[in-house]
Amino acid sequence: MNQNKHIPLLQVKNLGLTIKNRKYLFFRKKVEILKDINFTLEKGQTLVLTGDAGSGKSSLLHILNNPDIPHTGEVLVYGKPLKDYERRDRVGFIRLLSSDYNNAINPHKRVNFILEQPLKINTDYSTVQRDYRIDRILEYVGLSSSIKYSHPGFLTSNQMLRLAFARALVMEPEILLVDSNIEKLDAQLRSHCLNMLLDCQEEKETALVICLNDIGLIKHIADNILVLSQGRQEDYGNAKFIISKPEKEITKRLIQDYNNEYRIRPER
């Protein structure tokens, strides 16, 4: 029998992050932001991170995005630690999409500069090739290419969101990290965003790591779910099983509270 050792796309083992916070004038207290996180991610899969504020979701995404932050444990991509990859290859793999578009886009530079930056630093394309790539990615997210010459301050919020998408997708990453601000958008924009992410997954087999709090949405898009609380991993597994038969206390409570009396129940 052939022992086909399958190497997963992303594997995280025993990830931990502690920072020292200054408590009194000379005393620094160690705060454990993340402790002992383990999960695996395959190509084309979606992993959803759940947990209330302060549970370390954004910190986890930042570590995946930038492995230079000192952490314990290992982050392996195709079996090789992420730190060992060249920065150019790493940026081509993993990109972070910030949906807090007000703060995440430099308001003083034009759009084509913002989109060109990652290409210029990390790839060897010539100017013409970069231009072409920018045009194509703007077409993909649904922006007209005349927007290249405007400043982000003069765009509407819809256009800024698509620009944030374009900036994340311009390097054609294999893993896309989406932070938790996607839920603060209004319902139409949020569905639109999720549809775009699902499109991307279908066409290019991108793996997604999303932070969501709404269990209904999780049921729609998640393959696996990882529940965090106070930096500790409470529950991890296949989303369908966990939501239909929750075992841990915290997951049970989340699902129970989701089905509360105030949630809308339309008869369809």
Partner: peptide, 13 residues
């Protein structure tokens, strides 16, 4: 401290 600067640092400038 702004997000876009962090994005640029992680882009590799």
């Amino acid at each position: 401290e702004k997000e876009y600067v962090r994005a640029e640092i992680s882009d590799g400038s």
